[in-house]
Write a protein that binds this DNA or RNA. Structure first.
Ligand SMILES: [Zn+2]
Ligand SMILES: [Zn+2]
Ligand SMILES: [Zn+2]
Ligand SMILES: [Zn+2]
Lengths: 164, 164
DNA sequence: CCTTGACTGTTATGATATAACGTAAGATAG
DNA sequence: CTATCTTACGTTATATCATAACAGTCAAGG
């Protein structure tokens, strides 16, 4: 999974050391202010996700963690990843069975994900309006919405116009 | 998966023999007019999904198919299910790793799914407005949207107000 | 007839995810 | 400072979900 390489331009969110550092800084700040324990495994996992561009499968994460001396078994990766997702540092991309760093860990936000079907890049887009519309639809159906998964598939800016 | 039983009121879409028969009729009509081959395995699979209320996992489907004398191996179920999804007779619910019959197979439509986190019921809701908002967000990000997965998690009408 | 393509079935394997349990490190209370 | 409680980490083992690859069937069309 996510064994592709794509242009940095695919991922405005994570582009450049500066973007990555900024995301990481926001995340660490948030962990501190909220009293969340961003332990070494969790931190390394988050760093990996940020560096990855696009999404990483749990077993990709595990492989790296294992190579760095952490645990070698799936629960190690899944625990770190699930914790990051639960606390808003990462998102799960269900279509790809993968995970991606949150691009805006400082703020609470509803996110939609734009998944390129050519290069597998994943972009986090603000989804306030989308969520509002979904809430409407839910209310109309007598459904009390708690949270939602919104994943779009199509062509990213970079891949648009290419064949296949 | 989907080894629960829930009230018929959970599923307005599929409720009663009449709703189910109607969905099936619409589907058969559509298959005929579009020249799609709704073969026995596919038909049985669709009937099962319609009867199931909520979503069925591929292996649930396989078990039933197998019991009815069809193939006994996973590809049998996955092929039927994927075909139904590709041709608009069913939808895949990624959050549940499961499949559900389309409630409106007669028309092309963008759908959102309302998944109850208490009873696992799945309701198909019209998602025109949601998709419009998502398209907006995609355009703003320079992304050419092809299709989307929209899944909401919360409490269905029937389960609302219950504890746990 | 005989090819062609769509469909069904099989075996085998790959990929994703969690249950259950023991140990260690941190926080809290006495 | 220690006993205790809790959280986190690591392991083994297993469950669950999904596909690759190939063989047999059958109907349509030359
Ligand atoms: Zn985010
Ligand atoms: Zn792309
Ligand atoms: Zn539908
Ligand atoms: Zn419910």
């Amino acid at each position: 999974m996510s064994n592709h390489t794509h242009s940095a331009f695919c991922c405005p969110d994570h582009s450049g050391a500066q973007g990555a550092a900024s995301i990481l800084a926001q995340a660490e700040m948030r962990a501190r202010t909220m009293g969340l324990r961003l332990t070494p495994v969790r931190l390394r996992t988050l760093e990996m996700l940020i560096a990855a561009h696009g999404a990483m499968g749990a077993y990709d994460v595990l492989e790296q963690l294992s190579a760095e001396g952490y645990g070698t078994q799936p629960p190690v990766a899944y625990r770190a990843l699930n914790w990051l997702v639960e606390h808003g540092f990462a998102h799960r991309i269900r279509r790809l069975n993968a995970f991606t760093a949150c691009a805006h860990p400082a703020q609470d936000h509803a996110a939609a994900f734009l998944i390129c079907d050519r290069c597998d890049s994943v972009t986090e887009a603000p989804a306030g309006a989308v969520t509002a519309a979904l809430t409407e639809a839910a209310i109309a159906a007598g459904f009390a919405l708690d949270r939602a998964t919104i994943e779009a598939v199509g062509r990213c800016n970079t891949c648009a116009g290419h064949p296949s």
